[in-house]
């Protein structure tokens, strides 16, 4: 576990050292590039769609996702049930729509939380350096030694079971916070270390700026770009990981409606009714894809060389 885990330092190192007056033009340039990238628009549209789905599923369907017609279980897609019905006779289309909420909630909170925790500690370690850096770095290294799924399996088996929707979701999110922050921490720390020696930071220090002001107005804005890119990609990764945990029976559980749970339920009937697997898997993959593509597009815009 070497310090420069390059696999995650997605953003070009030179970025950190861009001149202070160059930053704005870099951002303007990046935005200019983004607007011309069709992948950006496709992924952004998909994300907006899924977020609206998560907030207001009623806009997309009038059918209740909890209304079962057992006699029609496993019926294939028809004009009445666009996606058909699942193993228990639920309307698949309605369940796919309502399933967005759990995935988006987990993804957004997990990515935002790890980004905040990782950024705070990264700023602390990168700016204070010395003993603080060493202590935080060692602690992060310990957390970093726990792989995502393995660690999640252990923690989630230990946590008490619950039936409360938000408690169930929060448990999964909490696990991702615990296991995910070191990645962002490392990224932020190395990013800060690249920004710190720059002239404008040194000038602010020489002029007697308070550490708080230097960090918030000079270092953070110039060091945050890689964190944003990686967090966007991680959002998709967390959605996928949540589905895997649900499949293993320790993530979200019925009666929670989630794509992961739906896919897990569909596997038993895959041979006779593949559509029951197909639709939630497609929704899930599209959501994951959208966030990864968005992250990719933003990174490419900031770093044209990586194209």
């Amino acid at each position: 576990m070497t310090d420069d885990l390059k696999a995650f330092e997605v953003v070009d190192e030179r970025k950190g050292s861009s001149r202070s007056e160059g930053v704005r033009s870099l951002r303007a340039d990046a935005w200019h590039d983004l607007r011309r990238n069709p992948l950006f628009w496709i992924s952004a549209a998909l994300i907006v769609l899924f977020v609206v789905m998560a907030i207001a599923p009623g806009l997309f369907t009038n059918t209740s996702p909890r209304e079962t017609v057992l006699s029609e279980a496993r019926t294939p897609p028809s004009s009445e049930n666009w996606f058909g019905r699942d193993v228990q006779g639920y309307d698949l289309y309605a369940r796919c729509i309502y399933g967005a909420r759990a995935s988006i909630l987990v993804g957004v909170f997990a990515a935002a939380g790890t980004a905040i925790i990782g950024t705070i500690f990264g700023l602390l370690a990168g700016y204070a350096s010395g003993a603080t850096d060493a202590v935080v770095g060692r602690v992060a290294e310990i957390f970093f030694a726990l792989p995502l799924i393995l660690g999640a399996v252990v923690i989630l088996t230990a946590l008490p079971p619950s039936d409360e929707y938000f408690v169930i979701v929060f448990k999964v999110v909490l696990v991702f916070w615990i296991l995910g922050w070191p990645t962002i921490f490392r990224l932020m720390r190395s990013s800060v270390m690249q920004v710190r020696p720059n002239d404008y930071v040194q000038a602010a220090r020489a002029l007697g700026g308070s550490p708080w002001r230097i960090v918030t107005s000079h270092i953070l804005p110039n060091a945050i770009a890689p964190v944003i890119v990686v967090s966007t990609i991680n959002l998709g990764v967390y959605i996928s990981a949540e589905a895997t945990l649900s499949f293993l029976g320790i993530g979200l559980q019925p009666p929670t409606i989630s794509w992961g749970v739906m896919i897990s339920d569909a596997l038993v009937a895959m041979r006779s009714a593949p559509h029951v697997l197909l639709f939630p898997a497609a929704f899930l993959s599209l959501a994951v894809l959208a966030f990864i593509m968005l992250g990719d597009a933003v990174r490419d815009a900031f770093d044209p060389k990586s194209r």
């Binding site: 589905a243 895997t244 896919i263 899930l284 993959s285 994951v288 990864i292």
Partner: peptide, 10 residues
Amino acid sequence: LAVIALPLFV
């Protein structure tokens, strides 16, 4: 990209 977006169990 497609492989990354598909969960392993699918």
